[in-house]
């Protein structure tokens, strides 16, 4: 009996420690976010850093976002056509490609690509700066690391990712259009009319809001893990891996919640 009781206690203890660990991590991320927000609202503003971050997060992500979207849009058209033909609904390809790209695949795929490209690079860069004492150097030069390193990157995420999502949505729809018109025999004009007519403002708004939230998550996670990096190459590696994992999971969780908020009303 006592052995069973001890095992049960050990199990509950481990469970409790895990839950407390999770709560502590949520608390730390929450405080990091609030700290970032407070610095975002106070001067000074580092314009050059913000410009560089906009360039890195936005402009330089365009090729990967475009390629991801066009292939996904094309594949989506093929899948919907094949699936729809089972119950004579091939004609819904334009509408489902549009709604699928704008509401779900556009924001999620762009968010995940940003997590892979931007979150990892932010985490690795800041973690390396930490390991090589560059963050301490910033402090001794009277420059707050959150204001100088984190705020520009998070701002860039909040501004650029919705725009990337919009671009991704358009390119994805174009990918579906190209496949439908070239391979599946759809009329080009009717395809476009069906796409435009079917989309509602809420679809586009939800897509952009998701992009903004995912951009914030992706850049914040990169900065958070970078700033909290351990020592040496292993510390940088762990920070980079952790940032991408956290960003990807949080983006998917946020997507579920935002979809609920927008479309289950």
């Amino acid at each position: 009996m006592s052995t069973l009781w001890r095992s049960l206690r050990a199990m509950l203890g481990a469970l409790g420690r895990t839950v407390l660990g999770w709560l502590a991590a949520i608390g730390r991320v929450g405080f990091f976010f609030l700290d970032t927000l407070s610095h975002m609202l106070r001067p000074p503003v580092y314009g050059r850093e913000i410009f560089n971050a906009l360039l890195n997060v936005g402009w330089l992500s365009l090729p990967v976002v475009g390629l991801t979207a066009i292939f996904t849009g094309g594949a989506l058209a093929l899948q919907i056509y094949a699936g729809g033909s089972r119950f004579n609904a091939e004609a819904v390809v334009p509408q489902i490609v549009a709604i699928g790209m704008v509401r779900e695949l556009g924001p999620v795929l762009v968010g995940l690509m940003i997590a892979a490209r931007v979150t990892s690079s932010i985490a690795a860069e800041i973690a390396t700066m930490k390991v090589t004492e560059q963050i301490d150097a910033l402090v001794t030069l009277s420059t707050h690391p959150i204001k100088y390193l984190v705020v520009p990157r998070v701002l860039a995420g909040l501004i650029c990712v919705p725009l990337l999502v919009a671009v991704g949505d358009i390119i994805g729809i174009f990918g579906g259009y190209a496949v439908a018109v070239q391979n599946l025999g759809f009329n080009a004009a009717i395809y476009l009319i069906n796409t435009v007519d079917f989309l509602e403002p809420l679809d586009v708004i939800s897509s952009l809001v998701k992009g903004c939230v995912f951009g914030g998550i992706a850049t914040l996670m990169g900065c958070y893990y970078g700033m909290g990096s351990g020592r040496g190459a292993q510390g940088v590696g762990r920070a980079t891996k952790g940032s991408v994992e956290a960003a990807a999971v949080l983006i998917l969780a946020a997507n579920f919640m935002l979809t609920g908020v927008f479309f289950s009303l």
């Binding site: 390396t128 700066m129 090589t132 004492e133 560059q134 301490d136 150097a137 001794t140």
Partner: peptide, 10 residues
């Protein structure tokens, strides 16, 4: 401050 490894911004 002069840091051990320089800590120059890459």
């Amino acid at each position: 401050m002069l840091f051990q490894g320089g800590a120059l911004f890459d």
